[in-house]
């Protein structure tokens, strides 16, 4: 089983990101389970969303504490709390960052300028599809075609713009 945790702020699209990713894994033939936690439904407030993926039915009805993969949509959120509270030792951390990053923790780091990509694709601050494109780059279990199908189903508007952000982020994801 793989556990994925998204941390972001209201307006980034973290809740829908987990749902799109769940759908993509579902289309790939996996059993997904996803949920979200809100501090209060408002823009700018910290939002966490979660996804479990397995090849069989998932029985865990409890919280994900430290995930295998951590997707950070707002860089400042990992300044507030140690990153190892969110991710396992040796896990993957993907961060939305406009500059190259290095972390001293024992994680596999990747970063992408999702804000710039989303903005240039006409999506403003909604960076979820860009983050998912970057995620497909670091998790080779999920071919892009499944994410593209899921985006078409879940994104309420600007479908082509979201697909462009997904593909561009896939290509622009970097590791230190």
């Amino acid at each position: 089983m793989t556990e994925v945790k998204f941390i972001g702020r209201g307006g980034h699209g973290a809740v829908v990101a987990a749902q799109i990713l769940a759908k993509a894994f579902f289309l790939r033939g996996f059993y997904p389970q996803c949920y979200s936690l809100f501090g209060g439904e408002r823009r700018g407030a910290p939002v966490k969303s979660f996804l479990r993926v397995d090849s069989e039915k998932i029985l865990l009805k409890c919280e994900i504490k430290r995930a295998d993969h951590l997707i950070v949509m707002a860089k400042d959120l990992i300044l507030e709390e140690p990153i190892m509270n969110h991710v396992k030792q040796g896990g993957i951390v993907l961060i939305n960052s406009d500059e190259p990053l290095e972390l001293k923790e024992n994680v596999n780091l990747a970063y992408v300028d999702a804000q710039k990509i989303a903005s240039e694709c006409g999506l403003g601050n909604i960076i979820n599809t860009a983050m998912l494109g970057a995620y497909a780059r670091i998790n080779q279990d999920l071919p892009m075609e499944f994410l593209e199908k899921a985006v078409r189903e879940y994104v309420p508007a600007k479908v082509e713009e979201n697909l462009a952000a997904l593909r561009r982020a896939y290509n622009e994801t970097r590791s230190p």
Binding site: Q33, K61, C62
Partner: peptide, 12 residues
């Protein structure tokens, strides 16, 4: 159903 664990968990 349980609030949140069942009401808001999305599964097949």
């Amino acid at each position: 159903i349980d609030g949140f664990y069942t009401s808001h968990f999305i599964e097949p």
